[in-house]
């Protein structure tokens, strides 16, 4: 069996109308590691993240050039089905966005979308709910509240539920856009813990503004500035002995 591959981009550029938000980004993100994306606001972190499940295309005037390979396949190739792509590449947003449904239906939403009514057996569904909630550490807290509205949970539980919602589809890549920015420090710590636990099974890419967080949870770190990739190294190296002066200035808090 071949080793699972992560994400590889070649000269990826992206324009919002006339404005170029990504300039020739080439990088390789490895499976089984957490990769942090840091940089000042507007540097293109989130834009880059959103390229990997092609959700940018919903915006008018967006144009991309270059290649993005996920699992060895070019996701911008003509034959790529967005539905299949997004099953494999899940995304977690800044603010938890549970659907206004029960906890159970939130977890099962992906399955319901992708399978016909008759194709899913009851015990399979129940198993999917339990397995997904266990994986994110919510099962004990919510096993008696599966019928409760997801929007009535605490923010921490909502965010974990949003992660759990991706899992029944067996994704390979989890994209996280500042997943802890709406949470308090204690909840942040527990969600970070969860991300560490998920690391081995997925390719995790996490955008963060919080440099301490990037240091805590990422194995590798990418520093971006004005749409360019400046430095991509092991997290320790990037923070302790940055090669580029701009990286050094940023991680030491001299700007940004």
């Amino acid at each position: 069996m071949t080793k699972p591959q992560g994400i590889r981009t070649e000269n990826l550029s992206l324009w919002y109308g006339q404005f170029q938000a990504l300039l020739d980004v080439s990088l390789e993100i490895h499976h089984g590691r957490v990769t942090g994306l840091i940089g000042p606001s507007g540097c293109g972190k989130t834009t880059l993240l959103r390229c990997f499940n092609r959700i940018n295309e919903r915006i008018d005037g967006v144009r991309t050039a270059g290649h993005v390979h996920i699992l060895g396949e070019d996701i911008y190739a003509p034959g790529v089905d967005l539905v299949e792509l997004r099953k494999r590449v899940g995304m977690v947003f800044q603010r938890p966005n549970p659907l206004p449904l029960s906890v159970r239906e939130n977890v099962l939403f992906g399955l319901r979308i992708h399978f016909r009514r008759g194709e899913l057996r009851k015990d399979e569904l129940a198993h999917a709910v339990e397995a997904s909630l266990k994986e994110v550490g919510l099962w004990e807290a919510l096993k008696d509240k599966l019928g409760h509205r997801a929007t009535s949970l605490s923010l921490e539980q909502q965010q974990k539920l949003c992660i759990a919602r991706l899992l029944p589809l067996r994704p390979e890549v989890l994209l996280m856009d500042e997943p802890c920015s709406a949470l308090d420090p204690a909840a942040t710590q527990r969600v970070e813990q969860l991300i560490r636990e998920l690391r081995d099974r997925y390719t995790i890419l996490i955008v963060t503004h919080n440099m301490a967080q990037a240091r805590r949870i990422s194995d590798e770190c990418i520093f971006m500035l004005l749409g360019k990739l400046i430095e991509h190294r092991r997290t320790e190296d990037l923070f302790i002995s940055p090669k580029d002066e701009r990286t050094a200035n940023y991680v030491e808090g001299r700007f940004g």
Partner: peptide
């Protein structure tokens, strides 16, 4: 809210499924 639609698209729902569900 737009976040509901994004949540849907991110599990691979088509536009029509997002609208309907």
């Amino acid at each position: 809210p737009m976040t509901f639609r994004e949540a849907c698209w991110n599990v691979g729902a088509s536009r029509w499924q997002t609208i309907w569900h």
